[in-house]
């Protein structure tokens, strides 16, 4: 079983702030939320069924993040470097970077914390004409089939598809392991391959501005009965009740 797990290095969104009306992007990097779940799932599958678990990352090349993922148990990481990638060119880059791997399963997180577009796994599945199982919260392999449970808002479904397939996972699927110090140290010896890829992005960022939610801060006074009635009126006006 050969598994490819995608992970992305992003700016730590919890630290991005608006300073003097500008976004302050001078923040540390991190592996995007849930990408560790994708890597964990890939490593668990490898441990269970043998084969390899390869990580792919496109965009920011951060050695520390890459080593963290290797420490979790990936066999190697491939880093695609280039100028700027949109979702489509990211999917193309991942295909390019793993073209020599006979991949049974591509695993991604349901979305990344920077773009939140949830689109790379779907695009990759389309480009390779493979089945896509998205928002997966549990998963098992049965011969050449993958059976997955997913939640789509109010619905929960059990899906089945033939391998090879593409999967996007939610944070529920597993609990990413915390590597031991020894695994961290061994990760330094694992291979990291660099691949240059000149992408032709279809979507370009023109501007990036802060998004500030200005709350109304209406203090409702009076006794509790009056206050509650006023509140209900306001909430109806806002269309949330």
């Amino acid at each position: 079983m050969n598994v490819v797990a995608g992970f992305k290095v992003v700016l730590d969104d919890t630290l991005i702030k608006v300073v003097n009306g500008q976004l302050d992007f001078n923040v540390p990097l991190k592996v995007s939320n849930y990408d560790k779940n994708a890597v964990e799932e890939a490593v668990e599958l490898k441990e269970k069924y043998g084969g390899t678990a390869i990580g792919v990352t496109v965009g920011i090349d951060d050695r520390k993040s890459i080593k963290d993922m290797l420490a979790m148990g990936l066999d190697e990481v491939r880093v695609v470097k280039g100028n700027y990638f949109d979702a489509l060119s990211t999917a193309e880059a991942i295909i390019e970077a793993t073209k020599d791997v006979k991949t049974d399963l591509y695993i991604f997180a349901e979305q990344t914390t920077d773009g939140n577009t949830s689109s790379v796994p779907a695009m990759l599945a389309s480009l390779l004409d493979l089945p896509l199982l998205s928002y997966v919260k549990s998963l098992r392999i049965d011969g050449r089939k993958v059976i997955a449970e997913r939640s789509l808002g109010l619905n929960s479904e059990t899906l089945e598809a033939e391998l090879p397939a593409v999967i996007s996972v939610t944070g529920e699927i597993n609990k990413p392991r915390v590597p031991t110090v020894r695994q961290v140290l061994e990760a330094s010896k694992k291979p990291i391959k660099y691949i240059e890829f000149s992408s032709q992005p279809k979507v370009k960022i023109v501007e990036l501005n802060p998004y500030v939610v200005n709350r109304k801060r209406v203090i409702i006074e009076g006794n509790m009965k009056e206050a509650v009635d006023k509140l209900i009126t306001y909430l109806k006006e806002d269309g949330v009740l």
Binding site: L11, D13, T14, I16, V18, L23, T113, D114, G115, N116, I205, V206, E207, L208, N209, P210, Y211, V213
Partner: peptide, 9 residues
């Protein structure tokens, strides 16, 4: 984008 911190054009 950015978990609700930014608006990108």
């Amino acid at each position: 984008a950015y978990s609700g911190l930014a608006i990108s054009k």
